[in-house]
């Protein structure tokens, strides 16, 4: 089966700084691909290039084996859900309004929208009474649940998550990790999940891609990386976080 998204020789420069450097990565369907690596290695930039927030200087991005063009970008975006660290929820809209914004503008019937919201509340275990609240009235965990719901509203083909749980306390974080994992399973969701936490990567990822300075150091299962590290950097990275893995 072909990859849903494929990056081919993609490079991105910020001034003289190489954020992404000749990176090629097929993102397979129905799997959660985790991008991991030290801070500044280019993980967020890869996601931003896929949704068109940054333009690659070199290389191409294929979506369903078609290159993404300026004309197709908006429709591609509507098939992608994107969740960022602090949620990116609009503070002037209630949780429910945040969730229905996109569907309402696409003229989806009201009943269908609220049915979808009900489904997602169950899936993410968001209490229904939280829907009437504004983002500033929600807890951090609830905000991330709503962000995830917003990304899932249109049943996206691809879900992009950029450290969605980084700001949460460990207990909530751990709950959300297992929930996300089971949601991905249930929905057969293709997703790219960015983190710099190896324990999180191991729990959520089907494929783990370890990056360093804009390049892929090694890609495979967690087992591949820990038992057959391709480079010295892979060994070091895994050893440095091994203690957290035991907890």
């Amino acid at each position: 089966m072909s990859a849903l998204v494929e990056l081919r020789g993609v490079s991105k420069l910020f001034g003289n700084e190489r954020a992404v450097s000749g990176l090629s990565l097929p993102v397979e369907r129905d799997r959660v691909t985790v991008l991991i690596g030290p801070s500044g290695c280019g993980k967020s930039t890869v996601l931003r290039i896929i949704v068109g927030l940054e333009k690659a200087d070199r290389g191409e991005i294929l979506y369903n084996a078609q290159p993404i063009t300026a004309a197709s970008l908006r429709t591609v975006r509507q098939r992608i859900g994107y969740v960022i660290q602090d949620g990116g929820l609009f503070p002037h809209l209630t949780a429910r309004e945040n969730l229905s914004l996109q569907s309402a503008l696409l003229a989806k019937p009201r009943s269908q929208i609220s049915q979808r919201i009900d489904e997602l509340c169950e899936l993410t275990r968001l209490p229904k009474n939280a829907l009437a609240r504004y983002p500033l009235e929600l807890s951090g965990g609830q905000r991330q649940r709503v962000s995830l719901m917003r990304a899932l509203m249109l049943s996206p083909e691809l879900l992009l998550l950029d450290e969605p749980f980084a700001a949460l306390d460990p207990l909530v974080r751990s709950t959300l990790q297992s929930e996300l994992k089971s949601i991905a399973r249930q929905l057969h969701q293709t997703a790219i999940f960015v983190t710099h936490d190896l324990a999180e990567a191991a729990r959520i990822g089907d494929t783990i891609v370890l990056m360093k300075e804009g390049r892929i150091e090694q890609a495979g299962t967690f087992r591949d990386l820990s038992e057959m590290p391709a480079t010295k950097f892979v060994t070091e990275f895994i050893n440095a976080q091994r203690s957290t893995l035991l907890t």
């Binding site: 949704v51 927030l53 908006r74 429709t75 975006r77 509507q78 992608i80 994107y82 960022i84 602090d86 990116g88 929820l89 609009f90 503070p91 002037h92 914004l101 996109q102 503008l105 917003r150």
Partner: peptide, 27 residues
Amino acid sequence: RPLRESAVVLGLTSRQRLQKIYLPLAS
């Protein structure tokens, strides 16, 4: 910036972004 980008990534047209998101945020 995250709010701007969220509006872009949701695939809203520039007119929708202005009306529904940017102007209310700047109100």
